[in-house]
Every structure is written in structure tokens, then in C-alpha cells.
């Protein structure tokens, strides 16, 4: 018998990524939290170590409006324009 594949779908084409601004310092770093319980504290703790032991300074912080929602593209664009690196709390 011939079966129609119930998993078939067409992969979506990804948008062209935004290119970071050239004048952003190489070691500029931000935190991005998924707003799940404990995520902010975890990221801030990591930032404390990075500042004390690896010489990072001016570490930024941003977060999703809440854990249940997706990250807003304009917020990500804004971060990409200011930072070269990010520590992201993503999976609980």
C-alpha cells in the first residue's frame, strides 16, 4: 500500500541575519534571561565571576518579558548592535 507521509513539511527559509556594528568592542558582553525562576540569579552570578576573574566590564542585562513568551526580534536586534557576546539562559 502507498502511504502519504504525515510528517512532511517544507523547511522555512531563514531570514538574513543582522550584521553586528563594526565599532562594538570585541569583549562587550550581555546577559539575556529567559525569565524562568532562578535564571536571572544564575546569569548575574556568572557575570560576577566574569568581571572578577576574566576582566569583563559593563556587562549588560536583558530578558524576555516573561518566560512563556518568545524573545522580541527588536530586542535581539538592539542587543546585537551593542554586544559581541552573550550569556543566554535558554533551557529552564
Amino acid at each position: 500500500m502507498r502511504i502519504v507521509d504525515p510528517t512532511f513539511g517544507t523547511p522555512v527559509e531563514e531570514d538574513t541575519p543582522t550584521v553586528v556594528a563594526a565599532d562594538v568592542p570585541a569583549r562587550s558582553l550581555c546577559l539575556f534571561s529567559n525569565s524562568k525562576p532562578g535564571a536571572n540569579e544564575l546569569l548575574r552570578g556568572v557575570a560576577g565571576h566574569l568581571e572578577a576573574e576574566r576582566g569583563f566590564a559593563g556587562i549588560g542585562f536583558s530578558s524576555k518579558p516573561n518566560a512563556a513568551a518568545g524573545a522580541a526580534p527588536d530586542v535581539l536586534d538592539h542587543l546585537a548592535a551593542q554586544y559581541r557576546m552573550a550569556v543566554v539562559a535558554i533551557g529552564d
Partner: peptide, 29 residues
């Protein structure tokens, strides 16, 4: 993953339990 696509080097902190979800999302992307 969305930050990395924008040219930001992103270190994604994930718990061991949620690793399969993040890995599957990465594969999809």
C-alpha cells in the same frame, strides 16, 4: 540561537534535562 544568527557569540546555558529540546530546536534551525 537567534542572537548567534545576528552575529553575537552566544553561550547558551541549558539544564541537562532540557538539552534534548534545545538540541532539537538547533537542528530545526
Amino acid at each position: 540561537m537567534e542572537l548567534e544568527r545576528r552575529g553575537v557569540v552566544a553561550f547558551l546555558v541549558v539544564t541537562r534535562t532540557f538539552l534534548p529540546l534545545v538540541a532539537a530546536q538547533a537542528k530545526a534551525r
